[in-house]
Design a protein around this nucleic acid. Structure first.
Length: 272
DNA sequence: GTTCTAGAAC
DNA sequence: GTTCTAGAAC
């Protein structure tokens, strides 16, 4: 069995849960399979595959390019379907992030412009890009969120609503246009700093993620303190909650801690 | 897609 | 001498 066609074999399976072990298959529906990427390029990395069900053929679903260059309405249906599955998956990844790491961080959903394996597959990958399987420049650049090789799902969906000539142009997905991107110099997608080589980039990505984790946890701790303080104040003075919560706290120096809940309150007022 | 390894880069 | 990349082989 060739590694290059293994995904098609999965997608053709009439009974995925009996054919595939739970170490490969994460979930499935009548229209798709969600599998663990065999060589995850981040802490969380899954693939969503559309199943080959009539009237679709393996060749319709060979790649994003193949799909976009067939019937436009069908292509949109398939991609919208994959999106729904991806959002469900994203929610369960976030739940797992909170369980295992105490906070949640970005998850990217998209296609490679030029795939290296046959059969359409949607990547759902956490933004840390910290993984032993991320080994070379091509691996990294293929997921760099601003380089152009990784096609964010919502960008691809937006092509359907632009003028037809733009859709036609984007649907070409020419190898010659995208493959050179994989050879671009290494640079951190977060801070834009250029990196000499892969080992340097990998330790930098680890650092960036560590910093993200640290500040997320600090933020959560601060929020908890504010919450506890409000609760204490309310308990001490149940008849005058409003006056207490409006007191300036004095110790909070970071404005962003206050802006976020404030913004939400404004939005709620606007909605009603 | 990965593994292996020659030779470039340091 | 060691580290690292990138192309060939699978």
């Amino acid at each position: 069995m060739s590694h290059l066609t293994i995904l098609r074999t999965y997608a053709q399976s009439p009974s995925p849960s009996t054919a595939l072990p739970p170490s490969i298959l994460f979930a499935h529906s009548p229209s798709s399979l969600t599998i663990f990427d065999a060589y995850p390029k981040a802490t969380f990395h899954f693939l969503i595959l559309p199943r080959i069900v009539s009237p679709l053929t393996a060749s319709d679903l060979a790649s994003l390019k193949a799909l976009l260059n067939r019937d436009k309405a069908t292509a949109k249906d398939i991609i919208v379907g994959l999106r729904e599955d991806a959002l469900v998956l994203k929610a369960s990844i976030e739940e797992e992030m909170v369980k295992r790491f105490g906070y949640k961080w970005d998850i990217w959903i998209g296609f490679h412009a030029v795939p290296s394996m046959e059969h359409l597959h949607l990547h759902v990958i956490s933004s840390d890009l910290v993984s032993p399987s991320l080994k070379n420049k091509k691996h990294y650049n293929s997921f760099h969120p601003k380089l152009g090789f990784f096609l964010h799902l919502d960008d691809v969906l937006s092509w359907f609503d632009t003028d037809p000539s733009f859709y036609t142009r984007m649907s070409k997905l020419e190898k010659s246009e995208y493959e050179p991107l994989l050879k671009e110099d290494l640079c951190c997608y977060r801070c834009n700093e250029s990196m000499k080589n892969m080992p340097t980039l990998k330790s930098h990505l680890q650092e960036e993620w560590d910093n993200e984790t640290k500040s997320a946890k600090t933020k959560l701790e601060k929020a908890k303190l504010v919450q506890n303080k409000r609760k204490r104040n309310a308990d001490e003075n149940p008849t005058n909650v409003q006056a207490k919560t409006n007191e300036p706290s004095g110790s909070v120096t970071d404005k962003s801690e206050l802006e976020e809940p404030f913004k939400k309150r404004i939005e709620r007022d606007d909605d009603s």
